[in-house]
Write a protein that binds this DNA or RNA. Structure first.
Lengths: 200, 200
DNA sequence: GCGTTGCGAAACTCAACCGTATCGAAATTT
DNA sequence: AAATTTCGATACGGTTGAGTTTCGCAACGC
C-alpha cells in the first residue's frame, strides 16, 4: 500500500513474472496452432518452448486443461465494424473475416479445438464458445433479423437455418478448401449464391 | 488342396481367427467413433476392447496407422438409390442420409478423422476420402449437373459452391446441432431454403 | 540485511503404452 | 501322432510425460 498502490496490498516476496506468463500462453497457442491436439499437448513441451520451468506453469495452473482454457481466453474474436447499408454487404463482411483468418495460425487453433475436441473437453469448449463464437453469432443474428424486418430478406426466414447455411459453407471451405479455394471473392460468391438460391 | 480348396494351398498350422480380426477392427472403429483421436489411440486399448492379445494385432498389422487404414477400409458410404424425379427430391435424399447417420458410431468415426486428423495423417485421410467421401460427392455432382442441364437449376450454377453450401450446412448441424435440431424434416428445410434463396 | 516468494533447472516417482518375447493351450495339416 | 501355426495372457525393458520436490539464485517488502 505504500508505493505502487495497485489496489490490493502486494504480498511479500518476488512478484510473479508477467513475461513468463505471457511466454507460456504464447507457447501454448503456438503449439495448438501447429496442429498439436490438446490431448497430446505436453506441459514439458510448453515449458521448453516458453523457456520456462515446469514449476512456473504448475504454480499458475493446476493442470493442462486449465492452462489451455486460460490461453483461449486470450483470444479475441475480431468483430469487424458493419457498414449497415445492406444485409448483403454486412454478411460479406462477416464471412470475409472468417476467410481471412482461415490461414492464420490462431484460427486453425480455434478450429481444431472447436471441431475435434469439443466432445472430450466440454468445459474447455464452452469457454471457447463464449469467447470466439458467441459474439460473431450474435452479430450475424442481428444482421439477419434486420434484413427480415426491412424486407431485404424473406419475412418468414428461418434465421437459425440461414446462419447454419452461411457459416457451414464457410466452414466447409476453410477446412477442405485448401489454399486455392479461399479466393478474395469467396465471401461475396457465397452470400450471393445463398441469397439468390440455386433454383432457376 | 485336399479339403477346403480355397484356391491357394493353406499353410500348415492353426489358421488365423477371422473372428479376432473382426473384433479388432470393430473395436478400433468404436474407439475412434467415441472420439478417441488416432494419435491417442492405443494398441493396448484396442486389444482390451476386442478381447484379444496384443500379439494377435501385431501379427496382422505392423503399426497403428496401418491398422486404422485397414479399419477404415471396412467403412462403406451407403449410397441411397435416387428417384431421379426431381433435383430437389434427390438432394433431400442425399442430405437425409447424412442426418440419419449423424448419431451412428461409424459416422462419428468418419467425421472425427475427416475434421481433426486430415492434417496429421494425410495418407490415412486420403484413403478415407476415397472410401467415404468421394462416392457421395460424385453422386451429388451428378444430381446438380443434371439440374443445371434440364433447367431446374441456374444454368450458370457454380456446382462446387453449391456442394459446399449443402454439405457444409448439414455438417454444421451434425456437429453442433445437438439432438434437438436433427429433426426429420431438416434435409427438406435445408434444400428448400438453399434452392429458393434467402432474399425476398 | 532478512524473510519471503518466484525463478529455471534438474532429479525424482508414478503411470501409460510401445513393441517384443515367452508361455501353455488350441486348431489345423501332413 | 507329429509338426506347425495361432491363440490369449503375461512379463519385460524402454520411452514419454505427468506432477512433485529440491536446489541455488533473483526480486521484492520491511
Amino acid at each position: 500500500m505504500t508505493t505502487t498502490e495497485t489496489g490490493t496490498a502486494r504480498p511479500a516476496g518476488r512478484p510473479r513474472s508477467e513475461k513468463a506468463e505471457k511466454a507460456i500462453i504464447e507457447a501454448t497457442l503456438e503449439l495448438v496452432g501447429e496442429g498439436v491436439s490438446v490431448s497430446e499437448l505436453s506441459i514439458e513441451a510448453i515449458a521448453a518452448r516458453a523457456g520456462v520451468g515446469k514449476t512456473t506453469i504448475y504454480r499458475r495452473w493446476s493442470n493442462k486443461e486449465d492452462l489451455v482454457a486460460h490461453a483461449l481466453a486470450k483470444l479475441k474474436a475480431p468483430l469487424p465494424p458493419l457498414a449497415g447499408v445492406s444485409v448483403r454487404e454486412d454478411l460479406i463482411t462477416l464471412l470475409d473475416v472468417m476467410r481471412t483468418e482461415a490461414g492464420h495460425v490462431r484460427t486453425r487453433c480455434v478450429m481444431n479445438i472447436a471441431l475435434s475436441e469439443s466432445d472430450r473437453y466440454p468445459q474447455l469448449f464452452e469457454k471457447f464458445r463464449m469467447l470466439a463464437i458467441e459474439p460473431r453469432r450474435q452479430a450475424m443474428v442481428e444482421v439477419l433479423e434486420r434484413g427480415r424486418a426491412n424486407g431485404e430478406l424473406r419475412p418468414d426466414l428461418d434465421v437459425a437455418l440461414a446462419m447454419a447455411i452461411l457459416n457451414g459453407t464457410m466452414l466447409w471451405h476453410t477446412k477442405w478448401g485448401g489454399e486455392g479455394l479461399l479466393t478474395a471473392d469467396l465471401a461475396e460468391r457465397i452470400v450471393d449464391q445463398v441469397l439468390q438460391g440455386l433454383a432457376a
